[in-house]
């Protein structure tokens, strides 16, 4: 199947700082592609760049950026606005700040459908109530008349998801959709997204820092560090054979229930993420890496650990390292 979203060599700069440095990825229909990394690695900027919602002054360049084969780079803003919230929708991280506090849930949800599809208020209201019920909200009619501040964090996040689904999107970009939620509600929302994906075949680009979520929902994982995708592989393969030292470090940092040794320290990655300015060469992770040598300051080879498993490091793939 041809991909829904194609990103090739995407670069985003804010003045002299490079936030995204040449990343490439694809999302196919029905696929969940997880973009994982820590604060400041460029994962949210990537999603905003795809939606053309970057702050003024940001420079976006790419060899290719396409939705269902249609080029987005040269698309005028009017045409982009017709796609956004329609065939490609986004769920933002903070439901507190991305819902308008001055309008009811109903008026914000129906606006999307009236605007994009020219639906009547009655049809749009029916659709909104239907979607609120599908995301597990009881008494949707009552909720439509409420303002965001009258809803709990979990309910607001579900409203955001329902709103993103108003126009039957084919591609959904979700930026940390469950980070602000309790674990119990998080599990409910992720099940809901998986169900919608199965029923509607939508492609999902899921941005998260939580490796537990990645393991449970992703089809494919791309690990971002300092603006680059340093490793990308199918989920089971990435967890079984992480080949980039950063991916390995991240996996060691996560406390796993039932496998806890309280007297032993957790694995951790010393140091902090560097700021990447103009003229930076070599591997951005080298100052925090146990395996770095002089060559890492010059260039980073792009290697393959399998047919669909790529990583940026001079070291041999993990499978070869353990065999040796």
């Amino acid at each position: 199947m041809s991909p829904l979203l194609e990103i090739e060599n995407l670069r985003v700069e804010f003045g002299r700082t490079s936030a995204v440095r040449g990343i490439s990825l694809k999302v196919a229909p029905g696929e969940t592609h997880c973009l994982v990394g820590e604060s400041g690695c460029g994962k949210s900027v990537t999603s905003l760049a795809v939606m053309n919602l970057l702050a003024r002054g940001a420079q976006r360049r790419a060899d290719r950026l396409a939705f269902k084969g249609e080029d987005l780079l040269g698309l005028p803003e009017r045409a982009m606005a017709r796609l956004r919230g329609n065939a490609m929708a986004m769920i933002f991280q903070e439901p507190m700040t991305s819902l308008n506090p001055a309008y009811t849930i109903g008026s914000q949800m129906t606006e999307v459908l009236r605007r994009h599809k020219g639906a009547s208020q009655r049809v749009a209201t029916e659709r909104a109530a239907d979607l609120l019920a599908r995301v597990g909200i009881t008494a949707p009619g009552m909720r439509l008349g409420q303002f965001p501040h009258q809803l709990s964090g979990g309910l607001r996040q579900r409203v955001m998801i329902a709103m993103a689904l108003m126009c039957d999107p084919q591609l959904l970009i979700a930026d940390e959709p469950t980070t602000a939620l309790d674990v119990t509600v998080q599990a409910q929302i992720l099940r809901l997204l998986a169900g919608l994906q199965r029923d509607l075949g939508l492609g999902l680009l899921l941005i998260t820092h939580d490796l537990g979520i990645v393991a449970r929902v992703a089809t494919r994982v791309s690990v971002m560090y300092a603006g680059e995708i340093v490793e990308s592989a199918p989920t089971a393969e990435l967890f079984a054979n992480p080949s980039h030292p950063y991916t390995q470090g991240l996996l060691r940092c996560v406390p796993v229930p039932g496998k806890v040794r309280r007297d032993e320290p957790l694995g951790s990655i010393p140091g902090t993420v560097p700021r990447i300015g103009a003229g930076f060469t070599g591997c951005a992770f080298r100052d925090r890496c146990d395996f770095a040598d002089a060559s890492c300051a010059v260039a980073v080879p792009h290697q393959r650990a399998g047919a669909t498993h790529d990583y940026l490091c001079r070291l041999a793939p993990q499978s070869a390292r353990t065999a040796a």
């Binding site: 599990a187 992720l190 393991a215 449970r216 992703a218």
Partner: peptide, 11 residues
């Protein structure tokens, strides 16, 4: 509801 980093188990 704790999602352990174990692929293949689902939510």
């Amino acid at each position: 509801s704790v999602l352990t980093p174990e692929p293949g188990l689902g939510v």
